[in-house]
Design a protein around this nucleic acid. Structure first.
Lengths: 236, 236
DNA sequence: TTATATACGGAGGTATCTCTCCACTTAACC
DNA sequence: GGTTAAGTGGAGAGATACCTCCGTATATAA
C-alpha cells in the first residue's frame, strides 16, 4: 500500500489521547464533538453507568456512530473527563500559590470534594476506575506531585498533622464520593460538614479550630438519605 | 369460606415481621430457613444487588420457591438483616454501659464502621434503603434513642464536641460505606484510619488526641483502590 | 390409605443493555 | 461531476436479570 490511508497526507492531528490518529472527515469530527459534549452532560448528571444509547440520542447520532468513535465505554469516559482532570491540575497550582500552606491545602480539599458533589461522573470515576491513557496518567502524576508538595509545606508550616500522608486524600475522596452519592438529593450540603470535620482532624495537634463546622443536615434530611425508600427497591 | 385456610387451626406463628402468618409446611419452613441462610451469606459477601438465582442455587431450592416465600427483594433483605439490626441494638446497649461516655461513643462508632467493613450488604443497605417492617423500624428507633443518649452524655462529659448531632453518625456511615466498598480488597484497613480521623474531629476542642491514628494505607494500596482497573470497565 | 391443599422447580416471557453487521449516504479528491 | 473511502443509523444477536405460569410432588389430616 502506497499511503497508509487516503487521508494520510492531510493533517494528522495528535488526538487527545496522544496517539497519532488520522484526521476525521468533517462530519465525523462534528459528530465526535457532539458525542463528547453529550457524554459530559449525561455522565455529570447521572453517573458513568448510563446507557450509551441515551448519550447517542442526546448527541443526535446513531448508537453505531458512538461505538465507532469510542469503541469502549472507557474510551468515552476518558475523553469526556480529561477536561476535569486539567481543571484539577489548575486547582493544585492555585493552592500552591496560596501564602498560607494550610489555606491552600484546605482550598484544594474543598475544591475536590465540591467537584465530586457537582458531578456524578467524577464520583463514580474515583470508585470505578478505568485504564487511562498516558496523557491522563501524566496529568494525574503532575497533580500528585503538586499535592505532595502542598502537604510537605503545610507540615513544615506546622499546620498539618505530621502523620498525614497523600493517601489520606484518596481516603477522603473515596469516602466523600459515597457520602455525596447518597445525599445529593436530600441533603446536598452534607459534604461540606463532612469535609470540615475532616479538615479539623487533619490539623496538627494543638492548633485551634478556626472555622466553624457548617450546619448539620436536619435529622429529616439524613432520614431521607439513609432510610427513605427512593425507587431503588421496587415493589410488585 | 368456612375456615380461612386449611392450616388455620394449626399454630399460627407470629412471623418475624409481626404479621400473623399461617404455619408453613415443614418442608416449606426448612426451605425458608435455607434461603435465609444463603441470603445472609451472599448478601454479606457480594452486596444486595446479587442475582436472586444465585441465592436460590446456594440454598438448593428453585427460584420459584424463593419468590414464593419472599415476593420482593425487600422482603428477603429485611428478613436477612433483622439479626444484624438486633446486634446493633445490643452494641448500643454495651456502649451505654461504658463508664466513660467517650469510650462508649468511640466503641460504638468503631463497631458500626467495622460492621460495614465486614458486610457488603450492610454497606449497601444504608445507601440503598428499602421500606422496612414495623419490627425493624421499632428496633431502629430503640437504637436511635440509645445513640442520642450516648451523645448527650458524652457532650455533658465534655469529651464530645457540642455541635455534634446524631445526623453526623449518618454522615459518617454513608461516607464509610463508600470508602469500604472501594477499599475492601486493596486496603481492607483503610476504614480504621478514616474512623480514627473522624473521632479526632469529633472530640471537643481542647481535649488531647489520645490514640494514634492507625497506619495509613500505602500509596500502592490506595493506587489500587483508586486507580487500578478492576473488572469494572470491560474491554473488548 | 387416600384425598387434597400446599409446595416444588424450571421453563420461558419480558425487559434492559451491550455491541456488531450491513445496506445506504456523503465528503473528499481527481 | 464521478469515484471511492469513510461515515452513518438501525435492526438485531447475545447476555443477564426479573418474575410467573404450570405440571409434578409431597406433607398432612381424615
Amino acid at each position: 500500500m502506497d499511503s497508509a490511508r487516503r487521508g494520510g497526507n492531510r493533517v494528522a492531528t495528535a488526538g487527545r489521547a496522544g496517539k497519532v490518529v488520522p484526521a476525521l472527515r468533517v462530519d465525523a469530527e462534528r459528530n465526535r464533538e457532539r458525542i463528547l459534549q453529550a457524554a459530559e452532560e449525561v455522565f455529570a448528571e447521572r453517573g458513568i453507568d448510563v446507557g450509551l444509547e441515551e448519550i447517542a440520542r442526546r448527541a443526535g447520532v446513531g448508537i453505531a456512530t458512538l461505538y465507532r468513535r469510542f469503541p469502549t465505554r472507557a474510551d468515552l469516559l476518558e475523553a469526556s473527563f480529561e477536561g476535569k482532570i486539567r481543571e484539577y491540575l489548575v486547582a493544585v497550582g492555585r493552592a500552591l500559590e496560596s501564602p498560607s500552606a494550610w489555606a491552600g491545602f484546605r482550598q484544594l480539599v474543598e475544591y475536590l470534594c465540591g467537584a465530586q458533589a457537582s458531578n456524578a461522573g467524577l464520583r463514580d470515576l474515583i470508585t470505578l476506575r478505568f485504564p487511562s491513557s498516558s496523557v491522563v496518567e501524566e496529568l494525574k502524576a503532575q497533580a500528585h506531585a503538586g499535592l505532595e508538595e502542598l502537604i510537605a509545606r503545610a507540615q513544615r508550616e506546622g499546620s498539618l498533622r505530621p502523620d498525614f500522608v497523600a493517601a489520606d486524600i484518596g481516603i477522603l475522596l473515596l469516602a466523600n464520593a459515597g457520602l455525596v452519592t447518597a445525599t445529593h438529593d436530600a441533603a446536598p450540603d452534607a459534604w461540606r460538614r463532612f469535609t470540615a470535620y475532616l479538615l479539623d482532624a487533619f490539623r496538627a495537634e494543638g492548633t485551634a479550630r478556626t472555622d466553624p463546622v457548617p450546619v448539620a443536615p436536619t435529622p429529616d434530611q439524613i432520614e431521607r438519605s439513609v432510610q427513605s425508600m427512593a425507587t431503588t427497591v421496587r415493589r410488585g
